[in-house]
């Protein structure tokens, strides 16, 4: 792979609900380079989360395609109205959700080792050793045998991140991962994501936290009404946006914060 070739290339993504009644994505084209940390901001219902879900293959699309490291993995077969997903390619991508989605009947260690054991047939001992060292790194070693219900929201979300990392993803998707957390728990989760950023993990983040966006992004995309309105470095999009709609949104968000 040539260094300048895109890691992710989305082409003309269209998605609607209810047989075209509600259009959520109206032609999204984004190219993401390796090592980029893309933060997607925008009003609710603007298609941000849908975009991440489409990238993970959790949603069907009407038309368009996505390639990952040059390999196409999401495409629409318009005749069958079905989205084709290459699950092998998709396994290079990890995702963390707003509501943790840990498996409640498995303890933390079991949550972490399930996918490597079942997807890659990794031996139990090696998977557990990797899981424990990840938990150690995230300050959760003492919780290995606890069940998700016994953890705080911040701890659960850090476990969810560790679980995704167990599969050695080449790209991480974070979908409003701090939105459900109590304010005092937000920083511990953001701190973990910052750690990953320091290790040059490519990531795409949907967030409402502008402070976090500013600190972590190498590039910010403002998405509204199903299209990309503005795309540029954080200083531009968050600091002095060129588009009127971006400016209105940024002002409103920062106003609420103050």
């Amino acid at each position: 792979m040539v260094a300048s070739s895109p890691l992710v290339k989305m082409q003309s993504l269209h998605k609607s609900y209810g047989d075209g009644a509600v259009q959520v994505l109206k032609g999204i084209d984004i190219e993401m380079k390796p090592g980029e940390r893309l933060v997607v901001i925008g009003p609710s219902g603007g298609g941000k989360s849908t975009l991440l879900r489409v990238m993970m293959g959790l949603e069907q699309i009407d038309s368009g395609s996505i390639t990952f490291a040059g390999q196409p993995y999401v495409s629409s077969a318009s005749r069958e109205k079905k989205t084709l997903i290459d699950t092998e390619v998709r396994r290079s991508i990890g995702m963390v959700f707003q509501h943790y989605t840990l498996f409640p009947h498995l303890n933390i260690l079991q949550n972490l080792v399930l996918a490597p054991r079942k997807v890659r047939n990794e031996p139990k001992a090696s998977a557990e050793a990797r899981a424990l060292s990840l938990l150690e790194r995230f300050g959760l070693a003492a919780k290995a045998r606890a069940y998700p219900a016994q953890l705080s929201g911040g701890q659960k979300q850090r476990v969810a991140i560790a679980r995704a990392l167990m599969l050695d993803p080449k790209l991480m998707l974070f979908d409003e991962v701090t939105s459900a957390l109590d304010p005092e728990l937000v920083s511990e989760v953001e701190h973990v994501i910052m750690q990953l950023a320091d290790q040059d993990m490519p990531m795409m983040i949907v967030t409402h936290d502008m402070w976090f966006a500013k600190n972590i992004a190498s590039r910010v995309i403002f998405c509204a009404g199903g299209v990309v309105v503005e795309d540029g470095p954080p200083e531009q999009v968050l600091g002095s946006p060129r588009e009127e709609r971006t400016r209105e949104f940024i002002e409103r968000v920062f106003h609420i914060k103050q």
């Binding site: 993970m56 959790l58 989605t101 997807v119 995704a164």
Partner: peptide, 10 residues
Amino acid sequence: QLDACIALGL
């Protein structure tokens, strides 16, 4: 829960 399963490639 199913979303999480898919995201983990199960």
